[in-house]
Each structure stands twice: as structure tokens, then as C-alpha cells.
Write a protein that binds this DNA or RNA. Structure first.
Lengths: 216, 216
DNA sequence: TCAAAAATAGGGCAGATGTCGTATTCTTTA
DNA sequence: TAAAGAATACGACATCTGCCCTATTTTTGA
């Protein structure tokens, strides 16, 4: 199998490094062209509809890799896109994935890793460096697919909810007392009652459990 | 580096296949024992606290791999878990991830793939076969992800993240120390450093800020 | 290979917290 | 209207927490 590959990367040095890595596998991976930004990439794709996969940098002038991915996935949905970047923060990962990228490799990827990643994607899978995979998992763990626990008849009074609200901000009972215009003793008593109702024994457990039960 | 590995798998034939694959790398990957179900696994772990990583089947009698993962991640948070299964449906994948699994490989994985996956996980990353990665990405594409704030250069060490993880469950110094097998003084020092890095002054603020910045 | 960072560990202190009491006043509602 | 719940308030005590200090060993990165 022979796959046709384009590169979107503004930095010539890094682009050449990628081309060099691809060259080790030229029987399978055929480098066709390079664009210096998202705009140029889209234009070139209009005139060259045989590209199978794009190695996409994120940070580029004019149009960045994430915007370009969105446009390309809409206009040419069969083209696979692998992000190649130094940025491995959650925002870039999530945005890339939600734009439809099929993979996410770091720039320090070896030629072999790049090769394997491209093949994996072309076979219908996805590819991620382990550290990126880890972050993706973390995001999935907290993502909104949650099973909120249904109210097991926990009823907090209005005042108790107000106190809990303040607690969740990390405030101490002294400060909360001032904010709610009552004495610290009262706040402490409320907290005691909240703990009893939620069956917990400290602030964090209380806040966590309240969140789970949508009491906050 | 030498990693100690346990296997949870009810089918003896498949368990032996795994052991065989591990044996190719016995310098690095030391197979310690096998359990036939989740219950047996948890019991054996109580008596053998040196395990680094578990290869976990999902479908097992008595207690399945997902339940076992939840329990083990709670009781022994430093142990890494890689799911090894024939099931690659969205439900199993999502549940495994949300139980805290660090990786998800299919049973047809080669010895080399298994080896690489284990090393990736032990280095703090995650591992997924490309088809699983693809499904994880699909889930992430449609998932609602809560609002977060851009990383203002906050870098927590691996250990600090582990401590924060435990903190977020509402545990005290003493308990965390026991779970991570270090002295309370060490935990307190880690927490001090975490507070400084996050610029906060108590547990709740730390947990809240960490959530916002997806450090947790 | 050498310096920096991370992980480990302990001491001390002031103040915060969790958990008991008890008690008065005001609302809600059966 | 009487009882129950909610909100208010104070005291006491052991423990936990946040913050300061120092110090050694291990790991990592340049």
C-alpha cells in the first residue's frame, strides 16, 4: 500500500525533519507537498485531491492547525489528519480531537513511531503518544458522561446549602460567618449538621458528595 | 528497570499465553502471580504489596475486571492496570477508563506490543491499541467537557499529582501516607509544595484549582 | 558527569477543624 | 396549637492542618 502525505508546518527546519523521517519509508509513505499555514494547505488540497493523510502542526500563522482540521474534515472527510506538535496541554489535545484529528504525536517522535502512527491511522485506528493517551484518558475520566447519584433523600436546608456553597470555595468558618452575617459558632453548627446529613467527616468529602448528588 | 506483574484472567489458556509473552522480556518484566477472578486478585494483593502492574481481563467470575480495577485503584493507587480483553465496545472501554485503567489492549496483542504497552504505562503514560484509541477519540469528540482554565505554567511532579489525587478524596495526611507507603512528613511536604505551586492555602482550594486546570 | 529537581523524613507551633455538649428563638406544618 | 425543624449561639477538647525550618537520598536532565 502506498499512502500520499502532505505536511502543514510553518517552520522549514521541522518540516524537513518530517520529510526526512518519511523518506525512510518511501515505499509506503509518499510525501507530496508541504504548506506553510492552514490557508495554504486548504488551497493546495483543492487542487490535489489525492492526499490520504496530513501531518499537521498546530501553531501556524494565518490559520492554525485546529481550524484547518475542522475545515478539511468537513470538506474532505476521507483525509486523515495527525497532529504533530510540541504542545501537549489539555486544551490543544481536546480541541484537536474535537476537530476530528485521527492522531496526536509529539515532534520528538522517531521515524519509526511516525511510520507506525501513520499506518495505524490509515488502517482505521488512531494513534497517540503514551503521554497524550494518558491525558486523553484523564479527560475522559472527568468528562460529562457521568452517573450522578440520585438523591438518597438527602435534604439540606437553604442555609445549609449556602454554607456548603461557601465551603466549596475553600473558605474557613470564620470568613463564612462574616459573609453570612452570623457567628462562627453558627457556621460550625451548620457544618456539623451538613456532615451528619451527608454522612461525611470533612470539608472535601462534603463538597465531593454534594457535587455528586447535585446539591451544589 | 524491573517491573513486577500480576495477571487476572480466568481462562488458563489465555493466562498462559500472557505469561509466555512476558517471558520474552524477563529482564524487565517479572511475572509474579495470577488470579482467576477479581476477588482472588484483591486478596493476593493484600499479601503482596510489591506489584507494579496488573494485566486485567474484563470478563471474570465473582468479580469482573472493572469492579476489581475500581477497588484496586482505591486501595493501591500506585498500581498500574492494563485491561487485556476481547471486548472493544464503547461501554467496556468507557467503564474501564472511568474505573482508572491506564491502558487497554486487545488479546491478540503481540509480545512486542504488550511489552511496549507495559513500559509506556510504567513511564507514566497510557497505552491503547489503535482501534481502541479511535473509539476513545470518538467518545471524546461527542463528550461534554467541563470548562477549564489554561495552564499558567503549573507543573506538578508525578508524586505530587498522586498526593493531590488522594487529597481530592478527602483523605488525611496519615491515610495518604499509608496508601503511598511513605511517612506522613513526606506527604505534608508534598502538600506544602503543591500549595506553593498552585498558590493556594488549603485542601479545598487545591482540589478546586487542580480540577479547573485539569491537573487532576 | 554534574547540577538541579524530586522524593524522602523529621521538628515545632499557631490556628483551624471535627465532634461532643447545651440552649434560645423563630418558622413551618401536621 | 403543639411539635418538629431550622437558625442562632457558646464552650471544651483532641486532632488535623498550614506553614516554617532543616536535611539526606534518589532521580533526572542538560
Amino acid at each position: 500500500m502506498n499512502y500520499k502525505i502532505a505536511i502543514a508546518e510553518d517552520n522549514t527546519f521541522l518540516a524537513n525533519a518530517l520529510i526526512e523521517k518519511l523518506s525512510f519509508f518511501k515505499e509506503e509513505l509518499q510525501y507530496l507537498f508541504r504548506a506553510r499555514d492552514g490557508k495554504e494547505l486548504v488551497e493546495k488540497l483543492e487542487n490535489n485531491q489525492e492526499i490520504d493523510l496530513i501531518l499537521m502542526d498546530i501553531k501556524m500563522p494565518n490559520m492554525n492547525g485546529i481550524e484547518a482540521t475542522q475545515i478539511i474534515k468537513k470538506r474532505f472527510p476521507t483525509i486523515k489528519i495527525v497532529m504533530i506538535t510540541v504542545f501537549d496541554d489539555d486544551e490543544n489535545i481536546l480541541q484537536s480531537i474535537q476537530s476530528g484529528a485521527n492522531g496526536y504525536l509529539l515532534k520528538e517522535a522517531t521515524a519509526d513511531e511516525l511510520h507506525k502512527g501513520i499506518l495505524d491511522v490509515m488502517k482505521g485506528g488512531a494513534t497517540m503518544t503514551p503521554s497524550i493517551a494518558m491525558k486523553a484518558l484523564k479527560i475522559l475520566q472527568t468528562a460529562e458522561v457521568p452517573q450522578y447519584v440520585e438523591n438518597e433523600n438527602i435534604k439540606l436546608s437553604k442555609r445549609e446549602k449556602e454554607v456548603l456553597e461557601q465551603l466549596s470555595k475553600g473558605l474557613g468558618y470564620q470568613v463564612i460567618a462574616e459573609k453570612l452575617f452570623v457567628s462562627p459558632s453558627t457556621i460550625r453548627k451548620h457544618i456539623e449538621n451538613i456532615y451528619r446529613k451527608l454522612q461525611v467527616h470533612n470539608k472535601i468529602e462534603a463538597v465531593e458528595k454534594a457535587r455528586k448528588h447535585r446539591l451544589l
